[in-house]
Nucleic acid binder design. Structure first.
Length: 292
DNA sequence: GGGCAGGTGTAAT
DNA sequence: ATTACACCTGCC
């Protein structure tokens, strides 16, 4: 049966899983396909070696499977529904002091920063450069299917660094990586032979870890900041993609163009250690309400 | 079918 | 120091 996960942290499952930080979740219909209107939806994703099914209703977030004590703990940590010093509800209380975010938050509240596998995040965001979310999801799915360990029919784990490092270029090309394929291969080799130690980067301070990431071919400032924020737990990181840039320029600078480094400095100064959460809310707001 | 979207690396000022 | 352009793919 399903377990109800306590969610005093105020996590909104759909907003979190559709926030562009993770690429291995999809929504399926639950129950009878003949009454799709009333059918609840279930989020199906891959977390490590587990195929995870979750739903959320008025009562909370339910873990449909796998329903074991170990899985329950892992998923609670992954989602950030454990009461920690920075969970969505508490973060949003602080961010709402910003008059701009106070207007944004009603549309975006409940976004959590997932505690993802840094290795998967590294590769996923190298793939994300100059790319869009549906295509990123296809590429990551393709890598899992061709190089990852099968978990259940049609679903595989994200490939290990060793498997990815040893992959043929044509295998990578078949996943539509395009010109990013050599970046992916190089990064996989760096991790596989220990020259890039992601666990060590997670322990370093934000600035030092950032410098190290920028040395990796295919990782620039935006992707580096995504890896820091989504994979390494550096919640002060503020990745600036076109949407975040639009949002900041529109909402804080009267629509005036600003240089990226000025936006970066502004965000670090204004949001401090919560910059990553602010970025998530601005990104979600821009994508849903600033299209046009 | 040409245009466009999306970050980074590189070569040009 | 900043700026212009190429890179691959899929969608309109």
């Amino acid at each position: 049966m399903a377990t109800l996960l306590p969610n005093t942290a105020g996590v909104d499952l759909r907003r979190t899983l559709e926030s562009g930080q993770a690429f291995r979740w999809r929504w399926d219909h639950l129950g009878s396909p003949v009454s799709p209107g009333s059918a609840a939806q279930v989020a199906v994703g891959v977390v490590g070696r587990r195929v995870v099914r979750l739903t959320q209703d008025g009562r909370g977030i339910r873990l449909l499977s796998p329903d074991t004590p170990e899985a329950r703990d892992a998923i609670r940590r992954y989602l950030g529904v454990v009461p920690r010093d920075t969970h969505p509800r508490r973060v949003e209380m602080t961010l709402a002091a910003d008059v701009v975010l106070a207007r944004v938050l009603p549309h975006t509240a409940g976004i959590s920063l997932l505690a993802q596998d840094p290795w998967e995040v590294l590769i996923s965001f190298i793939v994300s450069q100059n790319n869009n979310i549906p295509k990123i999801m296809r590429s990551i799915g393709g890598l899992a299917r061709t190089l990852g360990e099968p978990l259940e029919t049609g679903v595989s784990a994200f490939p290990t660094p060793e498997r990815l490092a040893a992959a043929y270029m044509r295998t990578l090309a078949a996943c539509s990586l395009g010109y990013r394929a050599p970046y992916v291969r190089t990064a996989a080799r760096l991790v596989a032979d220990g020259r890039l130690d992601l666990a060590a980067l997670a322990r370093m301070d934000h600035g030092t870890a950032r410098e190290a990431l920028l040395e990796v071919p295919g990782i620039g400032e935006k992707v580096g900041d995504c890896v820091l924020l989504f994979g390494l737990g550096h919640h002060a990181a503020f990745p600036i993609d076109v949407w975040v840039r639009r949002a900041v320029e529109r909402l804080y600078f009267k629509g005036r163009t600003r240089r990226l480094r000025d936006i970066q400095a502004f965000a670090q100064e204004r949001f401090g250690p919560l910059a990553g959460y602010a970025q998530q809310h601005l990104f979600a707001y821009a994508r849903t309400r600033l299209r046009s």
